[in-house]
Write a protein that binds this DNA or RNA. Structure first.
Length: 599
RNA sequence: GGGCUCGUGGUGCAGCCUGGUUAGCACACUGGACUGUCAAUCCAGAGGUCGCGGGUUCAAGUCCCGUCGAGCCCGCCA
């Protein structure tokens, strides 16, 4: 018989009764009756009840075993009496009568309990990640992640994509997030950078004629974490296609994403392909964000004209000065108590707004603080713009356009949640298209790229030379699901002449562009195919499919918000010899330095 | 860098608003009882600088100030 196991802990059934088997695993739980001991043995595959009584010489070995000790047991598979069957376990019809027991690895008392889903402090969970990963939820999430990645890979290969690897040690990219830098030993004072994305490499592979690239790509960005953004590193399903338009890219990736979500949706509805397309400007107007959650039925309306010249002077004067007014309908809100409106108003003030005006449409006409300022005509136009019905409330936000969109978007989200309007059990996808190529930096007054500088501007060279830069759109698109930005992509700018011009508008001289992107630019001078792609974020996709709201729940070994790995103690100090070898001298801040994540 | 919330035995929480008895409950841990449990049960025990520092007070887990840590958010994320 095999030394360690003949079967797994999830394998044995009634038909195995009578067989002599050997199992290995962790002591999941013990039920000690004094002269009779039940011991649940757990491995990756399941749990099997093992039993022994005081007639066994092994009883005194088994009884003091602490939870999570690793043991090997052997003995006969015994069918359980009907009353003793556990229908909750796949192995619940049998148990193992222990005749041999070897303690492979005794466990100390646990800092976090494995056999419960009780909550533990995140710091403890990260420090003892190997224990947390044994627990059911995290174990399941990580397996789900693996299956999702396998499914993505299969679907991409079936769609004719070819998997590549690209360098991890590469050059620093001047746009975007901060890079992680790696000092060169051989070249004093010079640094590699970890790639923020394999952007230029995949474009070079297109230029090299490979036609359809993909990679399960690690991306490294030195940016602060969020609940849905792991600091340091994350994974993308990075892909790129040659000789394609935007529609070709959409048609290629939609079935992959839709297929993956259908496969792992667990009963939830999934938007059928083709996904709705929403232009950036429209998304900002109707949803107040460039990543709208379409499970929320509320649509924001522009009602600037309703308040223009109205007797509500706060809005009227602001509108005259160029502000806009947006209306956020709140279906059925008239049934809410007064405190509902007061709380929302207080919340809006916490967000920095002066307040949150509203009207309620009822049978006897309009009520609410702003109702008296709106005559029948204005009220009629308001109802027409918002579609508000009897029993609905409408909230108003008035400010300059960017601020109003941001706040209206938040009000929309909050109302959707408070009024229970969010569609349950659904993955609602959309494309957000036609992002602006440039935006104005309010602080510097300068024009900057609003997204990827390698995107092709709509209208090409012609637009760059003659149009107002702030009106130029890019062939730049995002995939959004349930309000989460899953993917960002673009049709790339493969024309050096257009690229020089595009960068010139953002204040980059020809030499600077040449110095920074020379590798890719030169390649484009030797015959580059029109190409484009995107890069769905794998961690976020798994997070959505796992029903998690925190991305660390789907990453095996995540860092905390301070970008520390509490298990491995990274980042950590290095001996002076290593610094010398790398030609580095430290210039540490006077206090607060040298924080050790292990304390 | 900023804002908000939290910090009480190994762990999850209560106590704080309204200062005053021995800081309470559950899980884990230790010991004991128990031959059919499956979140076993029952009994007992050990385990606490109430994050840290300062202040107010006759008296601080509780009130005030500062500080450290964690989470969430803003900034940032081409």
């Amino acid at each position: 018989m095999a030394d360690l196991r003949t079967h797994t802990c999830g394998e044995l059934r009634r038909e195995h009764a009578g067989a002599t088997v050997r199992l290995s695993g962790w002591v999941h739980r013990k039920r000690d009756h004094g002269s009779l001991l039940f011991l649940d043995l757990r491995d990756h595959y399941g749990i099997t009840q093992c039993v022994l009584d005081s007639s066994s010489p092994l009883f005194k070995v088994a009884e003091p075993l602490r939870l999570e000790s690793v043991i090997t047991v052997a003995g006969k598979v015994v069918p359980r009496a009907p009353a003793a069957v556990n229908p909750k376990l796949p192995t619940g019809e049998i148990e193992l009568s222990v005749a041999e027991l070897i303690v492979q690895s005794p466990a100390d008392p646990l800092p976090l309990q494995v056999n419960t889903d009780a909550e533990f402090p995140e710091e403890t969970r990260l420090r003892y990640r190997f224990l947390d990963l044994r627990r059911e939820k995290l174990h399941r999430n990580i397996l789900l992640r693996s299956r999702i990645i396998t499914s993505m890979r299969r679907r991409m290969i079936e769609a004719g994509f070819v998997e590549f690897q690209t360098p991890i040690l590469t050059s620093s990219s001047p746009e975007g997030a901060r890079d992680y830098l790696v000092p060169s030993r051989v070249h004093p004072g010079k640094f590699y950078a970890l790639p923020q994305a394999p952007q230029q490499f995949k474009q070079l592979l297109m230029t090299a004629g490979f036609d359809r690239y993909f990679q399960i790509a690690p991306c490294f960005r030195d940016e602060d974490g969020r609940a849905d953004r792991s600091p340091g590193e994350f994974y993308q399903l990075d892909f790129e296609m040659a000789f394609v338009t935007q529609e070709d890219v959409f048609a290629a990736i939609e079935p992959v994403l839709q297929g993956v979500f259908e496969e792992f949706r667990d009963g939830a509805a999934v938007t059928p392909a083709p996904f709705p397309r929403i232009a950036f400007d429209e998304a900002m107007r109707k949803y107040g964000t460039d990543k709208p959650d379409l499970r929320n039925p509320i649509v924001i309306a522009d009602v600037t004209d309703v308040f223009r010249g109205s007797s509500f002077s706060a809005f009227a004067t602001a509108v005259a000065a160029g502000a806009v007014v947006r209306a956020v309908p709140a279906p059925g809100a008239s049934a809410q108590p007064r405190s509902f409106f007061d709380k929302l108003g207080q919340w809006a003030r916490d967000q920095g707004a002066p307040g949150l005006g509203y009207v309620v449409r009822g049978e006897g006409g309009a009520k609410g603080p702003l109702a008296k300022f709106l005559d029948g005509d204005r009220l009629g136009r308001l109802v027409a713009a918002t579609g508000a019905r009897d029993g609905d409330a409408v909230f108003f936000v008035c400010d300059k356009k960017p601020a109003v969109e941001k706040l209206a978007g938040r009000v929309r989200v909050r109302l959707g949640e408070e009024l229970g309007l969010i569609e349950a059990n659904a993955f609602r996808f959309c494309w957000v298209t036609d992002f602006p190529m440039y935006e104005l930096n309010e602080d510097t007054g300068k024009i900057e790229f609003s997204h990827n500088p390698f995107s092709m501007p709509q209208g090409g060279l012609e637009a760059l030379e003659h149009a107002d830069p702030l009106t130029i759109k890019a062939y730049q698109y995002d995939i959004v699901c349930n309000g989460v930005e899953l993917s960002s992509g673009a049709i790339r700018n493969h024309r050096p002449d257009i690229m020089y011009k595009a960068f010139a508008l953002a204040g980059y001289g020809r030499e600077e562009v040449q110095a920074r992107f020379g590798g890719m630019l030169n390649a484009f001078k030797f015959g580059a195919p029109p190409h484009g792609g995107s890069a769905p974020g794998i961690d976020r996709i798994v997070m959505l499919l796992a029903g998690e709201t925190n991305i660390r729940e789907v990453i095996a070994f995540p860092m905390n918000q301070q970008a520390q790995d509490l298990l491995m103690g990274a980042p950590g100090p290095v001996p002076p010899e290593r610094l010398k070898e790398l030609h580095l001298k430290l210039d540490l801040p006077s206090e607060d330095s040298g924080k050790d994540p292990r304390r």
